[in-house]
């Protein structure tokens, strides 16, 4: 009995020892790795698909003998169906609404960030941060409702007849509120990345909290704040629903916030929402606009990321 047990044991050990340490190809493992790699590169295909699909249709648009780059950039009316190709009519509204939005979101977002990062007690933060998070989580179409049915009536009582029912001011203001949490949270990240030692250095010089915050911490976090603003601009330029609901339905070359005008995104939404047949200039023109949107936001996002990465290295 005892011997038998011993025997089994030796056999066990022997079979264990037979394992050699040469590298083996494990088919399952390799297959999994290939699948995971494909999941990883799918995102690259997404980008390629965006560029290819938008580019293909945009080329059809620009390939139309009637469309010239000169018309595209110098005309101030946009109605491809009747030979008006002035993208400026849409860009003006995008610029106006985005500018108003940043004008609201930058000071408010930055001030919120400074308060949260430099002043608020943990308890106050616990109350205030969720407010920003909720604001950030509200769907943009709801902001659109808010702009059209709350902000616009208020503006109407202020500006009376000078303001149109659909106007860029209302859309821009609400877009500013929408972007505020984004700028606040990115700026706050930048501010809290400023080392404690800098703040202590300032306090030890007899600086007040304000002097430390505004003259030492904010300048030290400036690049991060810049990145936040750039992302904010990119978000404003790409935002669709607020402007689709509240800014106006129809291209209008105007920088007057009280006017109705259609942004690039709003135009895409309105035209594609109707019955749109493929292979028409209306269809291809939308892709030309979308390609411009994509390129502009891509550049803005790349700049912002580059800034954030450099900033991170500085303090690590």
């Amino acid at each position: 009995m005892k011997e038998e047990a011993l025997k089994i044991k030796t056999v066990d050990v022997k079979s264990f020892r037979q394992v050699d340490l040469k590298k083996k190809t494990r088919v399952g493992e390799s297959l999994i790795q290939i699948l995971l790699f494909m999941a990883g590169v799918l995102s690259i295909f997404t980008t390629i698909a965006i560029v290819y699909e938008l580019g293909k249709e945009a080329m059809l648009f620009f390939g139309d003998p009637d469309v010239t780059l000169v018309k595209f950039f110098t005309m101030t009316r946009w109605q491809p169906g009747i030979g008006q190709y002035g993208i400026a009519a849409l860009v003006s509204a995008t610029l106006t609404t985005s500018f108003i939005a940043i004008l609201i979101a930058l000071p408010l977002g930055l001030a919120s960030a400074v308060y949260l990062s430099e002043y608020a007690s943990p308890k106050a933060r616990g109350v205030l941060k969720p407010v920003l998070e909720i604001l950030a989580g509200i769907p943009t179409v709801v902001y659109g409702y808010f702009a059209l049915l709350f902000v616009t009536p208020i503006l109407k009582t202020i500006f009376e007849d000078r303001i149109q029912v659909y106007n860029m001011l209302s859309a821009g203001l609400v877009m500013g509120i929408m972007i505020l949490p984004l700028i606040a949270s990115m700026s706050e990240d930048a501010l809290s990345a400023v080392p404690r030692a800098l703040r202590e250095g300032a306090y030890a010089m007899g600086a007040t909290r304000l002097e430390t915050s505004l003259q030492i911490v904010v300048p030290a976090a400036l690049s991060g704040i810049g990145a936040a603003v750039i992302v904010g601009v990119s978000r404003a330029v790409g935002e669709t629903m607020i402007v689709a609901v509240a800014a106006g339905a129809g291209p209008n070359f105007s920088f007057n916030p009280l006017d109705a005008a259609e942004t690039m995104t709003g135009h895409i939404a309105r035209i594609s929402g109707g019955d749109l047949s493929y292979n028409t200039i209306d269809y291809t023109s939308l892709f030309a606009i979308a390609l411009m949107l994509f390129l502009v936001t891509l550049v803005l996002n790349l700049i912002s990321q580059w800034i954030v990465n450099r900033f991170r290295e500085k303090y690590e």
């Binding site: 938008l54 669709t240 995104t265 895409i268 594609s272 994509f294 936001t297 891509l298 996002n301």
Partner: peptide, 18 residues
């Protein structure tokens, strides 16, 4: 990281085309 910042309407155009 960049795709996360692409305007949603551009995804719509991609979806429409593809």
């Amino acid at each position: 990281n960049n795709l996360a910042g692409v305007p949603s309407i551009v995804y719509g155009m991609l979806g429409l085309a593809v």
